[in-house]
Write a protein that binds this DNA or RNA. Structure first.
Length: 152
DNA sequence: GACGATAGCCCTT
DNA sequence: AAGGGCTATCGTC
C-alpha cells in the first residue's frame, strides 16, 4: 500500500492518494501549507498536472471491488463525463438505466475517489447539488474547469 | 422502515 | 420569478 501526498494551490489543501492494487481513495486533508509532498505514483503527477490547469483524462485502475454493484456502476458512468462538462443526477440515472436521481446522489456521496471519478461534474437539475467534501470545493473545481476550457 | 449530494408539482408572495 | 412545502422515487443500512 502506498500513500502519496500532493498540495493543491487551487484548493489550498493537501490531497492524500491511497493506492494498493488500484487507486483506493483520495482524501482532502488540511495540513499546513509547508507540509511535505510525496510523489511516487503516476497518478500523483497526473493530479498535479490537473491542478495546474491541464485538461487531463485520468486513466488509472480503480480498486472499488468492495463497493456495491450499483455504486460501481455509478462511478463508472461518472468517469465518462468529459472535462468541463456536467450532467444531472437524473441524467446519470438514465444513462445507467437503473436507479433514480436520489439513489445516484447517495452513491456519489460515498465516492471514495473524488476528482479522478469526477463527481463534482454531477449537478442537480436546479442548482449545484451537494458535495461530501464541502460545496466550496465543488464550486471551485467547476469554475476552474470552465475557466480552462474557455481559455482554449 | 428511515434516510439522502433529487425532481416535480402546487402553492404563495 | 423565486422560494417553500409536499411527495414520489430508489438503493443502502
Amino acid at each position: 500500500m502506498t500513500i502519496d501526498i500532493i498540495y493543491s494551490k487551487l484548493l489550498g489543501l493537501h490531497i492524500e492518494i491511497d493506492y494498493t492494487t488500484g487507486l483506493r481513495s483520495i482524501r482532502f486533508s488540511k495540513l499546513g501549507e509547508n507540509s511535505k509532498e510525496r510523489k511516487t505514483l503516476g497518478i500523483s503527477f497526473d493530479l498535479e498536472r490537473y491542478f495546474e490547469g491541464e485538461m487531463i483524462d485520468f486513466s488509472v485502475d480503480l480498486d472499488i471491488s468492495h463497493l456495491s454493484p450499483f455504486e460501481q456502476k455509478v462511478l463508472e458512468e461518472t468517469r465518462k463525463i468529459k472535462y468541463g462538462r456536467t450532467i444531472t443526477y437524473s441524467g446519470l440515472a438514465e444513462n445507467i438505466g437503473r436507479g433514480g436521481p436520489r439513489a445516484v446522489g447517495n452513491a456519489l456521496g460515498k465516492n471514495p475517489i473524488p476528482i479522478i471519478v469526477p463527481c463534482h461534474r454531477v449537478v442537480a437539475k436546479k442548482g449545484i447539488g451537494g458535495y461530501s467534501a464541502g460545496i466550496d470545493i465543488k464550486t471551485k473545481l467547476l469554475e476552474f474547469e470552465k475557466r480552462n476550457v474557455n481559455n482554449l
